[in-house]
Design a protein around this nucleic acid. Sequence first.
DNA 1: GCATTCATACTCGGATATACTCTGTCCGAGTTCTGCAGG
DNA 2: CCTGCAGAACTCGGACAGAGTATATCCGAGTATGAATGC
Lengths: 157, 157
Amino acid sequence: MKLSGGVEWAVHCCVVLSRAEGPVPATRLAEFHGISRTYLAKHLQQLSRAGLVSSTEGRVGGYALTRPADAITLLDVVQAIDGREPAFRCTEIRQNGPLPASPQACRKACGVARAMHAAEQAWRDSLKAVTVADLAAGVEHDVGPDTFVRVREWLGS
Amino acid sequence: MKLSGGVEWAVHCCVVLSRAEGPVPATRLAEFHGISRTYLAKHLQQLSRAGLVSSTEGRVGGYALTRPADAITLLDVVQAIDGREPAFRCTEIRQNGPLPASPQACRKACGVARAMHAAEQAWRDSLKAVTVADLAAGVEHDVGPDTFVRVREWLGS
DNA sequence: GCATTCATACTCGGATATACTCTGTCCGAGTTCTGCAGG
DNA sequence: CCTGCAGAACTCGGACAGAGTATATCCGAGTATGAATGC
């Protein structure tokens, strides 16, 4: 089980956007994080399709959050990049072979699938409890109170 | 985020093994579930390396659980097949770019990574709470009390 | 009748191709700013 | 001095290759069984 590497980029970008003033172009975000510009653009497109960020074209265009940072959960960002499909996909092998489970018994989901899905639900619940605003506050606490002031200055330059 | 498809096979095989009497060869397990024999063998090897099952060669060989079914958690099986590495891998992009985080601040793990790892821990905790014995009991309850009697009969034939 | 030997059939284990998804990149469409010409 | 227009620069968006991993497969190494043989 491996999460797309772009998730990390997207989350950090959302944190920066939450404290930025105007739209921030993808090029700026890529430079700021020292990562590939073109590949980051691909992930920002996914965020745009998911409705988390809005994109404005033109000379002073860029990306901006569509909602307040405390209304965007970590789960929203992860699902926007990595997809909404569950990690475990039941193929109903219990219906195969010489002793298949009866269709009547298969009304209920397979016990294995239920346990796996419950675990994924716990994972989603944990991600859902954290917002982009929380993460931004955490960065401010860890790195320093004036962090985003300097970030805004650099973005404006 | 996609889990290896072999996880489902491995879990179901462990459930069968938990109620089998002697060693069960991979060919039998594959036939029983209607899946590829050779590919299942690969996953059984992974279970063997992880120490969950023991393999005996020879004419009446096969696989058997090394521990009681209530001492094998779903997490054990999943990690044996899918690996023990976390899905989210922090690349410390906060240290890149024109405004890198100070090494002092990086003593602590990145807030994003902390949140992601906490979610994965919740996932693991959920999987750890379910044992192979629980799953077998669930199958018995869903499909019928005499399920594993018939399974043993078929395995013996 | 019993012990020994040998061939056999069956098992697991690792090494080997293939398909697919993720990663990374490029170029085109669209929009806004800016400079300039005209009134 | 103000207005309208044209050019240019910068932006996003989708279409296009390459690499890595999961999937699927095959063949060789090893072992217990069972029969055949000699005593």
